[in-house]
Design a protein around this nucleic acid. Sequence first.
RNA 1: GGCCCUAUCGUCUAACGGUUAGGACACAAGCUUCUCAAGCUUGGAAUCCGGGUCCGAUUCCCGGUGGGGUCACCA
Length: 433
Amino acid sequence: MSVIVRFAPSPTGPLHLGGARTALFNYLFAKKAGGKIYLRIEDTDRERSKPEFEQNIFDSLNWLGLKFDNSEPIRQSARSEVYQKVLTQLISTGAAYISKEENQAGSDENKRSEVVRFKNPNQTISFVDLIRGEITFDTKELGDFVIAKSLTEPLYHLAAVADDIEMGVTQVIRGEDHISNTPRQILLIEALGAARPTYAHIPLILAPDRSKLSKRHGAVSVTEYRARGYLPEALVNYLALLGWNPGTAEEIFSLDELVQRFLLAKVQKAGAIFDLVKLNWLNREYLKRLPDEILINQAPPEIDEKIVRKIMPLIKERLTILTDLKQLLGERGEFNYFFQPPAYGLELLKNQKHFKKLSELINSVGNRDDDFTAEKIKAKIMPYADQEGRSEVLWPFRAALTGREKSPDPFTVAAILGKEETLKRLVYAENLV
RNA sequence: GGCCCUAUCGUCUAACGGUUAGGACACAAGCUUCUCAAGCUUGGAAUCCGGGUCCGAUUCCCGGUGGGGUCACCA
């Protein structure tokens, strides 16, 4: 039987990391098996469902690179006649009934006087979870649960089950928080005489305090990570590693590589804490691998592209997220001395003794671009620095060029600035009083 | 609280019932050109507790404890 899975978010908020990982695992499982993955929008709650959230979910999934086999998502809000048919069937077979509700004083005003309830046969339901093994529930305590507000207003369990059956879903891969929903859904499936899918409940993503990751813990939506400057490849890679591993020491995987390696059986049972520090490391790894051209295009347009090109190796060493680029190159950024002469106080130089000699040595380096290189500058300066004391010479040299306590080495900086500008800055430092 | 899930370094995790319990991130130290970044090397760091099975349990079973999820006319 060919594999059919679905990702079925509810558009009541932007796509969050947990949802993204559920979508990813479904995607990996489907692609690995050569099956299909469908996107279904569970918008039966008209009040809470919003078009902008639906759009956010599409955009986020698309940004992550997760493609679905249905070009148009299945919207539950457009399928009420299907649910109505199912409800009618359930009622006609006696598996469900229209229930007159007592309106108790002080109860919710939105509550209807009539709803559709499922007639619970009070069985013990057990199913084999692909990740956890056999799980058993006594459904007695569930009671005759409500499956629709009315014939045209189905609730979650009914709609989900009806759709899964019609779509031929073979594996339901979803978050662990749905384990307790499973017996109810199985009851409905059996009442409809349909075949059960196989279930796989993936562990939750946890906040550092070990509770379910949520809004109150900070950034949780894919959109926020995108805006902060994380690469989709890094986020996908990290999310995959949260709760899954290939069984080898490898950690860097493209989406396609993940498809090759993914195995539901290797998914962890316990929840995993979302570790931003490790995501940062992965993002850095991906940023390092990114072609220079892409990074250069991300630089603020008012900045001299020639210089950006030259300092790209330096930039790459310092990037964690894409937005660091603007930080680094900005007016007050760490690398501003590449674009304008630095302003600094006399005390930063520690001494001005060596500038005359430094200027002479710099002058003796060739003028052409392939002469005025870090290596050649270093070859001229180091003997003098060794003779006078490295920190005695090198610190003032570097400080004069950058105006900073911390920076790349002076040879590299000088080579990037060029001979003329380097000399200018040395002369300025020498004459500083 | 009921029900369900779960338990290896701080975090993510590896380990046919037999390993000096491995790797990665983070951390610390050292090296690398004065400072930084990057890199390299080294180091510290874990099997929740108690029983049982077994010649031998991280691993299997039971109990406890901890953690999580869920108990809507939300999904």
